[in-house]
Design a protein around this nucleic acid. Structure first.
Lengths: 238, 238
DNA sequence: CAGAATCCCATTCGATACTG
DNA sequence: CAGTATCGAATGGGATTCTG
């Protein structure tokens, strides 16, 4: 009985639930509500504050964000945490199970990228761009870089604003973490994520982006360009 | 301009859209609406009729099913088709791109299965059960059966009602198709899919299910039991 | 800044009844 | 069988206000 109650509480996020043992149904109960999966996506590269999330999800209202965070916390996908002093600010952070949703998010992106209706020119959040690299990196290309490891930095928007990441391509995978780009061997900078997406995925020449979209590439330029060539969009499917 | 209009039409399924180039957002626009992904799931093993879908999705109303089918058709996920005579009935069938959503559905299930809140005792549609096999089959186990191929049949509910499938395990994968079980080497039969799920995933002994849940196993029993041992639920994650 | 609380309208849901 | 039509109830989400 207590188990049943527990289950009902977890699923009470949006009142209605499918009565279905299928995992797909359960996942959609937790993540299928409007905005929910995008909130999880924004947390996928580390804890964020309420206002960070709001800024990364243009169009979401404070009320809806509050509701989604509550439902995801009840569902065990994320936890609220107060950063140790100094700081003391409250952040939201995925649980281990929440982080395990990355393959699900990746398959969503991989599937959508094969549609002709998908419009890649829309705005893009910094986290979206970084996650898309993990999804779209060519494994064969990664395997081929054995021995030429380098740390690639990314700064999107104002450097002080905090959207800085470091990617460390390796044959085994492509770890990406938030962090200082000071130690990186090459750094991409852009005012908006979409400018970098144009170079990685739309095939726009990097020197054109540097002239017209505010992109800058510093450090080992050859390494940066080799990195940028690792990504490939899948073929569209009728 | 015509391309822009096209895009807007496709996305008009439920009026609101994220303004986000991220594929995850686009996928959720098309599949994230309540019931949508479950409709796609039910079509994943072949075309179905309106009333089949309604019967497989307890709780969905005719209105909502109609709306979802319209939106999915506009989105290019499925098409309506009229079967050639005799028959002449109308069915819904996934497009090639719709079928490509299977990995997405699988990752949803794989993720949900790692939650402690997931309740596997709820009812299950026949298609859900068959798809779960493709998701949960142990690749190492499949590789180990090289040379012992056999065709495994499944009949769920009344044989005449049509929920019959044949699985052909092979080292390369586990194809599952709707079809006559007459040529199968072993056949599982059960009044409801959940009875078989109890054997595959909850570890309930098959002879107990045969005595108490209406399950029958015909043909090569040893083959059937070897097949049933190929499946493993992932570890729950905190 | 990080939400909680209210208000309020548009949308959506599900049930039922109806139809070619 | 394959939907359409209608309707009341529930929900959703934007805007605004308030608080510590």
């Amino acid at each position: 009985m207590s188990l049943l109650k527990e289950t009902k509480d977890v699923r009470a996020g949006h009142g209605r639930w499918y009565n279905d043992a299928c995992g797909t149904a359960f996942a959609m109960e937790l993540l299928g509500e409007r905005w929910s999966l995008l909130v999880v996506r924004e947390l996928m590269l580390g804890a964020r504050r309420f206002s960070d999330l709001r800024a990364s999800l243009p169009g979401i209202s404070a009320k809806v964000l509050t509701e989604r965070l509550e439902a995801l916390e009840r569902g065990g996908v994320l936890v609220r945490r107060v950063l140790p002093p100094p700081g003391r600010v409250q952040v939201y952070e995925l649980t281990a199970w929440g982080y395990a949703a990355e393959p699900f998010i990746q398959e969503a992106g991989r599937w959508a990228a094969r549609s002709r209706a998908h419009d890649p020119t829309l705005p893009l959040s910094p986290v979206s761009l970084m996650l898309s690299m993990r999804t779209m990196v060519d494994p064969a290309g990664l395997a081929g870089i054995a021995g030429i490891t380098g740390r690639i930095g990314f700064v999107i928007g104002e450097e002080s604003a905090g959207d800085c990441f470091v990617a460390t391509p390796a044959p085994q995978g492509l770890p990406i973490v938030r962090g200082d780009v000071a130690g990186a061997d090459a750094v991409f900078r852009a005012p908006r994520a979409a400018a970098l997406a144009a170079g990685f995925y739309a095939g726009i020449a990097w020197d054109e982006l540097e002239r017209e979209a505010g992109v800058t590439i510093t450090g080992e330029r050859a390494l940066a360009l080799r990195y940028a060539a690792l990504f490939r969009l899948p073929e569209p499917l009728a």
